[in-house]
Design a protein around this nucleic acid. Structure first.
Lengths: 346, 346
DNA sequence: CTGAAAGCGCTTACAG
DNA sequence: CTGAAAGCGCTTACAG
């Protein structure tokens, strides 16, 4: 039913090989005349090469996996910030004539299964914890070009692409300090889960130290990313730590929850408390007041991921160090000078 | 390098065929004893069947395409509402041992190319306009099970999955009428683009008619979906139609923009004007006041899409009529009785 | 510049 | 219950 190389070859009166060479653009090997003729037939008949046959016969499948954690029976959780990266990844890959296979990973061995089964040329690991990247072992990965997004794993098997998390935190906390804040809280998921959070925490500490502000560990709180979690934390903070005048948060959705929690306890943002988010998700511009946040270079991240993967596929050496994509502070309405209090100051 | 059927067969001292039968669970064909032995070897050696070889040799690729429009050089635009469906689709398919290929479609013929190239068993068309679905032609589609999401196309080549758009609009507008509104505007993208909008418009008209409210075409406005578009429309509405006390919108993001535009012109929601959105996106719960909106049954939509596709793949008859997934009104803070005016009433 | 042969890793009838 | 043969649609060396 479907038209094959053989059909084209028969119609053109040449061998399979010649058609194959033409279709694959190996110009030097075929005369211009027969190339034209073959190309015309290919077009007329609507010939499209079989990717599975190619994948089987050649070394390359031109298929890249997009692997995303999926807990048990749950469906993939792709946050808005991530989904943008997915779209950009797809476009970059498509430009290069690669295809993207989206796969949820419930158990660890599914990573290797996906790689083997479809003979993937490469894979992007999106949203995995550093510890999971660490555990990848060479035997199972084979020659697949693996890119771990937002990872600080030391596993040499994976190429790493990430933003300048340390710098992003510096930007946010410096802004807060410049505004006059001294009691600045830090809220984000546990450090062990992702190096991203640790780096941001380190950036936070550095700026405090630079400014002679003592780090108060009671102000550093583990809060899972989510609106409700942020809300609960915001309420607690308002009740238990009225001295805190600013919060730096590792995600916009968390920040938005915090603001709502603060408000629920009668504290206004940014009048009483300043809040800074992270990611500059669309939503940051829709809430009231609009969220001050740290923006990542998402297109840069996607492009870099694909570039690294292609370099690796082309046999290039792994770069000495992971590049950190740029980051910038987006000032909107949730950061302002601290309120003047009854002179407690510090 | 990779272990193949042949390797397993050699180690087990049986033929390729027998291993194939075992791996594919054709129980009746192999004795329990040899099956156990083969399974053990498969596991020990970490054998994973080659999907491309299978796809080539068998009729089925067990691959489903997720086709999403991508204009020119742009990357896919997957709105938050859509991305949830993607995650759920992936999960359902994964359960059934299918894989999902994500593909942006810039030019129409890329649809057929994707189908042919990867020998897809099925494809889900997400976000295409009805007119594009209409244009699909049988030759190119072959036996692929096509599911068009949110489509009202009459093309028999595609199975259709959609929400009860008519009913959703009824719910929203009835709520508004019950609250006492008579001048209710409708804002959404052009009707021709998607039947979804048309159905919602029809639901809107029906409820007005039911309640003896004359439909004022000047109150029906084409507004592309987007925050800024909504904002601009909200401002215009506030300036030009102060008599309007309620707006029904075909998307949450649009509604949020409208609210902001109204506010920019000094009109409060829901004090002066009520606004109802559509989709119940996460964001609806984060804005202030929280958005009243129509929720779709997203898990149901994804499950239905997969069910229809599998039925089709199993050779079942196409159902008589497309099922419309349920819909419900989520009452939050943006719909209230109209303000009492200087007695204009109507 | 062009082609005949072998093989990629499977499945599908068909025999026994 | 088990197997030998053919073939899916391509690409890769290797010849000419």
């Amino acid at each position: 039913m479907a038209v094959t190389l053989k059909d084209i070859a028969a119609e053109a009166g040449v061998s399979l090989m010649t058609v194959s060479n033409v279709v694959n653009g190996k110009q030097a090997r075929v005369s211009a005349a027969t190339r034209e003729r073959i190309l015309r037939i290919v077009k007329d008949r609507g010939y499209v090469p079989s990717a599975s046959a190619r994948s089987l016969a050649a070394r390359s499948s031109r298929l890249v996996g997009l692997l995303v954690p999926a807990e048990g029976e749950a469906s993939l959780t792709i946050d808005p910030h991530t989904v943008e990266v997915v779209g950009m990844l797809e476009r970059e890959l498509r430009r290069l004539d690669y295809h993207l296979m989206l796969r949820g990973i419930a158990r660890r061995k599914e990573i290797t299964e996906a790689l083997k089964s479809w003979n993937l040329d490469g894979a992007v690991l999106l949203g995995f914890q550093d510890a999971e990247i660490d555990r990848l072992d060479a035997g199972a990965i084979g020659g697949v070009a693996l890119v771990a997004m937002d990872s600080y794993s030391a596993n040499p098997l994976a190429l790493e692409v990430r933003s300048d998390d340390f710098g992003g935190a510096e930007l946010a906390v410096r802004h807060l300090v410049a505004l006059g804040h001294r009691r600045i809280a830090f809220a984000g998921p546990g450090f062990s889960a992702t190096g991203v959070v640790r780096k941001r925490y380190e950036g936070y500490r550095k700026v405090l130290a630079e400014n002679g502000i003592e780090v108060d560990d009671a102000l550093v709180t583990t809060v899972e990313i989510g609106h409700d979690e942020g809300l609960a934390y915001g309420r607690r903070l308002a009740r238990e730590r009225p001295d805190v005048t600013a919060v730096f948060t590792t995600a916009d959705i968390l920040a938005i929850g915090v603001i709502e929690g603060l408000a629920a306890e009668g504290r206004s943002v940014p009048g009483d408390v300043s809040v800074i988010g992270y990611d500059n998700a669309d939503i940051a511009a829709y809430v009231t007041p609009k969220l001050t946040t740290v923006a990542q270079d998402l297109p840069g991240k996607a492009a870099e991921a694909v570039r690294l993967m292609m370099d690796r596929l082309a046999g290039k050496e792994r770069p000495e160090r992971a590049t950190a994509l740029g980051v910038r502070l987006v000032e909107r309405g949730t950061a302002a000078p601290p309120p003047r209090r009854g002179g407690s100051g510090r």
